[in-house]
Amino acid sequence: MAHYEPPKQGKASQLFDVIVLVILTVGALFVPLWLGMAGAAKIVAEPVDSPTWESLGQTAAQAAQYEALGYDPASAHDLILARFDYSFSAGALIAMIVVIVLYYVLMLKFSEVEYREVIAEKFGDRR
């Protein structure tokens, strides 16, 4: 394979590349947060009025530890009752699997094309 001579990259172009990467990086984390789509919000499905340790499902030993940590039933109410919702649709699960598989297939395919060029230039026809 003929030797590939890469173009020289100017300083402005280098700076532009860095800015693109930073924007993409920050966007990947903060866009879901800004749009309020970041999951993991636990919810209290069945709040308890005038909570007691018993109504919060706590035994005497468990209540004693909460009190040692500085909680009373009212302040511990949300902490104790909040739960994740693990229900999901088959469509969402399939979409996730497709996205992950697509990503790896895309990456391995493009990598292979680039890798063959590297090996051809490095080794030529040598064994």
Binding site: A28, L29, V31, P32, M37, A38, G39, A40, F84, Y86, F88, A92, L93, A95, M96, V99
Partner: peptide
């Protein structure tokens, strides 16, 4: 995916 699916896709 259970609880943090949005971050995973993002």
């Amino acid at each position: 995916f259970l609880g943090y699916g949005t971050q995973l896709v993002a």
